[in-house]
Design a protein around this nucleic acid. Structure first.
Lengths: 128, 128
DNA sequence: TGTTCATATGAGCACTTGTTCATGTATTTA
DNA sequence: TAAATACATGAACAAGTGCTCATATGAACA
């Protein structure tokens, strides 16, 4: 492949070749990164965490996480684009909920990693 | 609680109270966000993905993901700080590997979410 | 129809992120 | 000890993010 593009002398050629053969494409890595990026903000984490318990409208979410309606609406757009949440309309009110159960698992897996270093994380894993 | 801080009129009070009682603190939400933020970059995703297959040194990683040694080193620091990777020294060379098996699961869970909309993701889930 | 309310959206701005480039550090080897 | 190698780090800068504020949309109701 393009070993010549590498600037270093220390390459283990077989290892590099083996892993390169299985590597994600740039676009694939970007998609995965975008998925995690969606959960890479404390307010969005709080939104997902809230919706794990029950569906909520925009201003309920704003009240729960302590942000403005507008800020929450902006974040919800991102969560919608990444298909992490869905909504149903009832008159003027939009009720948001998680798009599927994988989101739930994804957040729990994050908590599981944190529980290695922080005690509080283990507590949440018991109750959700 | 601090319902008076909310700017809206549409609050479902019981729902907000119920969820508020279980809500993550700001610090806790930040820790969770930081965990996901660590995987929110395509080059870091590629690094983790590489290390799922085998341990690699810094310049191997640079060759595999197509970035400079320096860029990779900067990213590895972040992955180290968040305890996603560990390393062992052998002479001048540092061999990096995943810190534990939860990282593996975390990335797979991301792939599982993507596989809802992208076919390629399902293929990776079969082989890793 | 006009008003109100719940939510969405665009512009603008402070802050953050990821890279490059130059330099520093630690280990091996001459 | 001096030079070379593998990696780390700091500064600096372009690009991206998340908020606020002002405005738009769309549904209900008088």
């Amino acid at each position: 492949m393009q070993f010549d593009r590498c600037e270093s002398q220390c390459i283990h050629e077989e290892a590099v070749a083996a892993v390169s053969g299985k590597m994600l494409s740039g676009e694939e890595a970007q998609s995965l990164a975008d998925t995690f990026k969606t959960l890479a903000d404390p307010n969005r984490v709080k939104i997902i965490f809230s919706l794990m318990h029950q569906e909520l409208c925009v201003c309920d979410l704003a009240a729960v996480i302590g942000a403005s309606d507008s800020a929450v609406s902006h974040q919800l757009r991102m969560l919608r684009n990444q298909k992490l949440v869905k909504f149903r309309r009832e008159g003027k009110i939009l009720y948001y909920s998680l798009a599927d159960e994988h989101i739930d698992t994804l957040l729990k897996q994050g908590l599981k990693h944190i529980s290695h270093s922080k005690e509080w994380a283990a507590r949440f894993l018991e109750f959700i």
